[in-house]
Write a protein that binds this DNA or RNA. Structure first.
Lengths: 219, 219
DNA sequence: CTGGACAAATGAGACGATCTCAGCAACACT
DNA sequence: AGTGTTGCTGAGATCGTCTCATTTGTCCAG
């Protein structure tokens, strides 16, 4: 019975415990319905302790999502670097995005509905990572123009918005647990419409050199 | 000084007052930062009275947005009925959407970030109206196929998602007060990419010989 | 004109959330 | 063992939504 009323752990460990608990509770209940009290309980600390390591509840959300993003994108550039061809690269990018949504709908929902709305979003590392993402997209498109595969004068940001906006709307029901979608099929369909929409006229109908049939299913 | 401490108004009037106050406060501060106390004060009632007419704070949000939608769309079908040609109709629809966002960014934000996220969204009249909207889009596209202007086999829902998702992403910064956009230019750009993306090959000026390229994406 | 019933409106306060902070107690280092 | 440092605690301040017993205009019956 002489067990200590509490234990002192190294900062790292405590932070990790709290973040793990937070991720679990957010994942189960969403941000608004998750209470700091419950997160604290699962992490084995008292509520006040959470606030020693995280300024707000929102800081917890940001930390959780940032860590997830870091895991997620660690191999992205590496893979993208190997894939050649404008349309193949775009297809990989779109598929990767869709696939992520399929695997972690709740975390994606946290980003879409909670994190991205806040006034502090632009100060977030998640924002930076998203910028890098969309930057890649623009780069691929610019490269396509340089190769003569994409028409000059295409408004690149509009094209990018149609990609990511299209993905988001398409997965909308699924993210809310009310539907399903196929990452591969959706990626094909989106890139196909986009390809016809922005391809240089000469490359449009037949695409004969090198990759005869369009590559499908990267990765 | 024998003025009554309060006045009894017909239900209609009270509801209207409260909704007007709510709309103003939501518009200034957003949903989360708006307090029912402030709404009540501006409507000239006490906090408890708001709850006589609206079950939750959220019911107030829904009522405000529903009323706005009703105003907004009263003339939509009428206008659309007059416009002929698949691409013109699509362009009008996209422009209308963009134009609405430009005029009422805060209300749009309420829909995008607060209303649409909730679990009760599908029970909302706003949801029904949005369905009608996207239904119109699909109808226009189907009609385009029937006229031979759009390729058969285009996944219509994907096309629709690229339209509305594209619009939403494109206006994202503006809605948060961090940028600008041109409804006309954006509508042109989006419909142009889409048109090339889904038009039947014969209607594209430069592309004469019919299919040749591999068919993709059945259904 | 008057009194009483009815319902609109009040305002106090229950409830539950985030976040603060003074002090206790575990650990490291003499 | 004594002592300083500081992770951790837990009580409570604060602020939000929402409830409800009570008060008080209004209106109609007599």
């Amino acid at each position: 019975m002489t067990q200590p009323a509490y234990s002192r752990l190294p900062r790292e460990r405590r932070v990790a415990d709290i973040m793990a608990a937070a991720r679990a509770v957010f994942d189960e209940k969403g941000y608004a319905a998750a209470s700091v009290a419950e997160i604290a309980e699962r992490a084995g600390v008292v509520e006040g302790s959470v606030y020693r390591y995280f300024e707000h509840k929102r800081a917890l959300l940001i930390a959780v999502v940032e860590r997830w993003y870091a895991e997620l994108l660690s191999d992205f550039d590496e893979h993208l670097g190997v894939i050649t061809g404008t349309w193949n690269r775009l297809r990989y990018l779109v598929w990767k995005h869709l696939s992520t949504i399929e695997k972690q709908p709740m975390l994606v929902r946290l980003v879409f509905e909670e994190l991205r709305s806040g006034p502090d979003y632009r100060t977030t590392a998640v924002f930076q990572v998203n910028r890098r993402y969309t930057r890649r997209t623009i780069d691929i498109l610019k490269d396509g123009i340089a190769r003569g595969e994409i028409r000059r004068g295409i408004p690149l940001r509009i094209a990018r918005d149609m990609i990511f906006g299209g993905v988001e709307h398409h997965t909308w029901a699924f993210v809310r647990g009310e539907g399903a979608f196929s990452p591969v099929a959706a990626a094909d369909a989106i890139v196909d419409i986009l390809r016809r929409g922005i391809a240089a006229d000469t490359t449009l109908p037949e695409v004969r050199h090198v990759p005869k049939g369009p590559r499908r299913k990267p990765r």
